[in-house]
């Protein structure tokens, strides 16, 4: 099994998870790199992407697992050949064959930007920091069984808040597997408890993955 770490930025962030799988299947084919296929009635090339990314979210650390069918290509060449056949916004950063087990994946460093039509009011940074300094922070979560409330604080390992110009920025390390916190929930907390600071636009970026002990995950 080979693993590619890739970024998804720019206009490509609007491509859905399923469409992205299809896009990679075609990129492999264009690059002349045959993939192994699933068995069964309707064989499909087997590629899998860990931690599906929400539409609109940017990432610099996506993982794609795949297996080549009957050919061996040096990993650096694989990276180059794929990048030649991909679209703007999707870039393979590295390819390797000794990736860690996905179940060891635990933490994600992310950036969240909340944008406003006017300069951020004075004291906004303090209010937001105070919000995340509470003992408990219940935020609504939409799941299969309807809307439930969850306390997001235990899933935030570190958080810094910076308010300047017309934006408030979070730098955070959050849990991303068992349990996982969607970084968008940081914004949801602000919208719920500090409605006057509800942004006109919010942008989330995945920056870096770690294992459960905080060591870089690859």
């Amino acid at each position: 099994m080979l693993r590619a770490m890739f970024s998804k930025t720019g206009d490509a962030v609007w491509i859905s998870h399923l469409d992205l799988m299809r896009l990679f299947q075609r990129a492999f084919k264009r690059a002349g790199l045959p993939l192994t296929h699933s068995q069964g009635f309707n064989p499909r090339p087997s590629v899998s992407i860990a931690l599906p990314l929400s539409v609109g979210v940017e990432s610099h650390c996506e993982l794609l697992d795949f297996q080549l069918d009957g050919v061996e290509v040096p990993v650096e060449e694989l990276r180059e050949r794929l990048n030649e056949k991909l679209i703007p916004g999707i870039r393979v950063l590295s390819v390797y064959d000794d990736g860690m087990k996905l179940k060891e994946l635990g933490l994600l460093r992310c950036e969240v930007v909340m944008e406003y039509d006017r300069p951020v009011p004075e004291g906004a940074g303090e209010s937001v920091r105070a919000l995340f300094g509470r003992d408990q922070l219940l935020v609504e979560k939409k799941g299969k069984n309807g809307v439930t409330e969850q306390d997001i604080l235990p899933m935030i390992r570190s958080l810094s808040v910076e308010a300047s110009g017309d934006a408030i920025r979070f730098q955070a390390v959050v849990c991303c597997q068992d349990p996982s916190l969607n970084p968008m929930q940081l914004v949801a907390a602000v919208e719920r408890y500090l409605p006057e600071l509800s942004p006109v636009y919010k942008k989330v970026s995945r920056m870096e993955l770690f294992d459960k002990n905080g060591q870089p995950f690859r």
């Binding site: 206009d11 609007w14 859905s16 539409v55 056949k85 703007p88 916004g89 006109v200």
Partner: peptide, 19 residues
């Protein structure tokens, strides 16, 4: 446009940028 895209269904059809 980017601010509007999160609010609509299937935003990828409005951005171009295909192969």
């Amino acid at each position: 446009l980017n601010r509007i895209l999160p609010l609509v269904q299937k935003p990828a059809r409005y951005t171009g940028g295909e192969y």
